[in-house]
Design a protein around this nucleic acid. Structure first.
Lengths: 337, 337
DNA sequence: TTCAAAATTCAAACCGCTTTGAATCGCATT
DNA sequence: AATGCGATTCAAAGCGGTTTGAATTTTGAA
């Protein structure tokens, strides 16, 4: 069933039928009803390819997801995606995820941009210097960066305040007398890791504390490496009295390492993890820097994307949300010594 | 840059340029070279919408992924997806994931099928009675079921031998003298859970053993519920001497519960988990029923899908792979008593 | 009644690509 | 020089929608 057949069936022109279906005002009320009824009865639905071709847009938005082992099961990601998906469904548009091997990521972007298969993209896991974003920006393709990056041109981004989150955590720890604080970071080419580390170093400096370089571990983005990082910290002498882990998965591993080592978390060592730790570690109520409303964040990014496609300047679409410190039982007074 | 402009630029007709680009034989060798060169220089790439419209196919395949919390971070899934993605990239086709809320799943299928946005689908997480599959089958839309289901018509599916896997596990346990064996299952509307449970019950029966209904726990598909299920089993009197967990995430939770309860796994209680447990539980080498080659499985499903689109009868595209029992340290002789 | 304005409807052009069926070219044969 | 045939190339007709600009009805006032 296509538009022409439906029109013939109704004894009208394609024009009228098309307009009736798309809600144009210049079509008679009774005519519209007949058309809608016939469309429903015949299960007619406009061919999206033809529609896209004629309209020059697809009503599909995308997110390219590099299939890194370390990304396996990042709960935050899926929650954000769910929010995006719901927001798009609400306006009859679609979301697709293009999963690609990291090697094929750049070509994929080119293909998508050239082919205009989607009307806009969300770029996740932004790097400090991000080729993907540079490319999209140069090509003037609508995108929202999920996380900031270094770029000369103005661009649309959504992010949580990495510096503020770390400052909150540090205030708490310093207030409890901690002086030997360690930071476990994701790879530092990731923008959030870089910003969090910078904020950490700055906070230590302004508290007049030296940063022991052995207390700075990076390249830690999954459970296993988080576990190992914590083991490494435990082997230091003196041990840090507090540890901040800048990402969820590593945090799980790190806390697990403490449990396995039989350490009394919150007394012997304090731990703060960036990211929700819901239901992952039985019995341990981890103190976290939480990014609330991941679902809403996804929806917000969709709004921004739609505004962008609608012609709003990218420079006006920049949004910084504040993380919150959720007190758990893993932070306590610094142990003397 | 579009086909017409490129053709004018070269002083040729669109026909010739199109054929040159698509590798048709009736175009002169020198002409083809000129065309390819010009295309590259001008960054020309055929508009996929127009192409799809003309060809009646999109070269895109899809998988609809219901965003269930329980699915968060299923490592198997992403590995399979990676395999599919790679296999499709190799033949210049694309994979997309359409993430939808479970409520919107059915409409999404209809929309995709009607709109022919993709040439074929993989249906994951098949249910015993699966509306999605019934719908696709009736609509004669090409699909491969990842996991079997109940359906009258012949359909293409890829699955691991659930019954065989359970039999292997049971043989091992029975051989070690276990008589009180428990099974922790995913929701039983999931086909794999149903089949595994049926096989479990059958194996118990043919060993002449009673199944204590308290030892049958279902609706367990994430870490938390796996943890709770194991706690529940530990509270039974008498306790089971062995437990089979039919899915990975629950398995993680279950083993964690044993660790937290201070139980000597493999001596006091034996555990076998269906699914790889790589690097998730520090220090515990879990005995698993493994589905090897998830990556290859994804690639195989793509092959099947391509064959299907190519006209091969669905009934001839059914593939059953064998799981293997990977011995770890969590299985031992049954404790007397 | 008559006629202009407003409300509807329509035929045709267009989006960018593939493909059919016809036209043209090159070259060996007669 | 005419003929025939394969090798190339081309114009035009789709694919299934949307939209422009003109045509047809209706409506309301004169």
């Amino acid at each position: 069933m296509n538009l022409e057949r439906l029109a013939n069936l109704l004894g009208m022109s394609k024009t009228t039928v098309s307009r009736a279906l798309n809600g144009y005002p210049e079509v008679n009320g009774r005519t519209r009803e007949r058309v809608l009824k016939a469309a429903k009865e015949n299960g007619y639905q406009a061919n999206p390819m033809a529609r896209s071709l004629a309209l020059g847009r697809t009503n599909v938005f995308g997110i390219i997801y590099p299939l890194l082992p370390a990304d396996l099961g990042d709960p935050m990601f899926l929650d954000v995606v769910a929010g995006m998906s719901a927001a798009l469904e609400a306006v009859s548009k679609n979301l697709i995820i293009a999963p690609v091997s990291p090697a094929a990521e750049q070509p994929s972007y080119q293909q998508i941009v050239r082919g205009r298969r989607v009307d806009g993209l969300v770029v996740s896991r932004t790097l400090v210097r991000d080729e993907r974003i540079a490319f999209l920006s140069k090509a003037k393709f609508p995108f929202v960066a999920h996380g900031r990056t270094q770029l000369d041109a103005p661009y649309a981004w959504f992010d949580y305040d990495n510096a503020a989150g770390i400052r909150m955590a540090m205030e708490r720890l310093l207030g409890l007398g901690h002086q030997r604080v360690a930071l476990v970071s994701a790879p530092l080419e990731l923008n959030f890791a870089r910003q969090r580390k910078d904020a950490f170093v700055a906070a230590m400096a302004s508290a007049g504390l030296e940063v022991d370089t052995r207390y700075l571990i990076d390249n830690t983005l999954d459970r296993r490496s988080g576990y190992q990082a914590m083991q490494q910290l435990l082997a230091c002498s003196p041990r840090p009295t507090a540890v901040i882990v800048d990402n969820h998965l590593s945090g799980v591993g790190a806390v697990r390492a403490l449990l396995d080592a039989g350490i009394d978390i919150g007394r012997e060592i304090s731990v703060i993890v960036w990211g929700s730790m819901a239901d992952t570690l039985a019995g341990v109520d981890v103190t976290t820097i939480d990014q609330p409303d991941a679902h809403k964040a996804g929806a917000r990014m969709v709004d921004m994307l739609l505004a962008l496609v609608d012609g709003k300047p990218a420079g006006e679409l920049q949004e910084l949300w504040q993380p919150v410190l959720l007190a758990g039982s893993t932070v306590g007074l610094a142990q003397p010594g």
